[in-house]
């Protein structure tokens, strides 16, 4: 699966810092002031029950949302980023055109777009579907197409917000394999999930949120074996009230 052409240069990706970043909507605090630093080319999994603030954290990190107070910034030049959503947003065009569109947006010369897009389709097992309207593909196929689109953008940081929450087990495996491929290429991963086993399979480090508050951020091994917080313990044991 490795393609040298797509290998990212071994440059340090700047750290992402949250400094007292909070989100308030209609006088309701959805995310308490959060201070957090993410660095290294790691696979960070953000966990927590529904409504914990995982999606808000992702959107703050990716710049889709501005904090109500505090700051979110990259320590250095903001890296190339891409995001994959729980429900992929695909344009009303063919699978192939969805990919060439992303290449056009990122400034790829016209001639290079189709070959690159076809390569990405092949990589994600979508070649036979290239002419099909993207919006009639199955959920798993749509998510793979969204990953192929992200792949073409060669992101230094990839955000994935519950990418497997709505998928069958086989499609989930494909997404997890893709995450590992991205990481092997040198992409930092920031992904939310509420699936503990998935986190165990993928995580280098884990961030746990609960009721809009940061509970713990630690290396995966430590998180799952000797968590610092009793809330984390309860979460791992499945005792946390959702």
């Amino acid at each position: 699966m490795t393609q040298m052409a797509h290998q990212l240069p071994e440059l340090a990706i700047p750290a992402l810092r949250f400094e007292g970043a909070s989100v308030v909507h209609r006088s309701q605090t959805l995310l308490q002031p959060l201070t957090l630093s993410l660095d290294g080319c790691r696979r960070t999994l953000v966990m927590g029950p529904n409504g914990a603030g995982k999606s808000l954290l992702m959107r703050l990190a990716h710049g889709l949302l501005l904090p109500s107070a505090g700051q979110v910034y990259w320590e250095g030049k903001p890296p190339r980023q891409a995001m994959v959503f729980q429900r992929p947003v695909l344009l009303k065009r063919s699978a192939l055109d969805n990919l060439t569109y992303a290449l056009a947006v990122s400034g790829t010369p016209w001639r290079a777009r189709k070959p690159l897009a076809r390569e990405a389709l092949a990589r994600f097992g979508l070649s036979p579907l290239e002419r099909r309207p993207a919006r009639v593909l199955s959920g798993g196929e749509q998510q793979r197409l969204a990953l192929a689109r992200a792949w073409l953008l060669a992101p230094e940081v990839l955000f994935l917000d519950e990418p497997t929450a709505a998928l069958d087990p086989a499609s989930m495996r494909a997404v997890e394999a893709a995450v590992l491929d991205f990481h092997a290429r040198g992409t930092r991963i920031l992904m939310t999930t509420h699936d503990l086993n998935q986190a165990k399979r993928l995580a280098d480090d884990v961030v746990l949120l609960h009721e809009g508050r940061l509970i713990e951020h630690s290396d995966a091994e430590r998180f799952f074996t000797t968590p610092a917080s009793p809330t984390t313990r309860a979460f791992i044991d499945g005792d946390l009230i959702w």
Binding site: A82, V89, S106
Partner: peptide, 24 residues
């Protein structure tokens, strides 16, 4: 409303979103 986050994620300014939205 449906496309906003994806287009924003792709780094499209509002002006550049117009042709995409009109076409779709």
């Amino acid at each position: 409303a449906e496309y906003r986050e994806q287009l924003q994620s792709l780094g499209l300014s509002r002006l550049r979103r117009i042709p995409t939205l009109l076409w779709d």
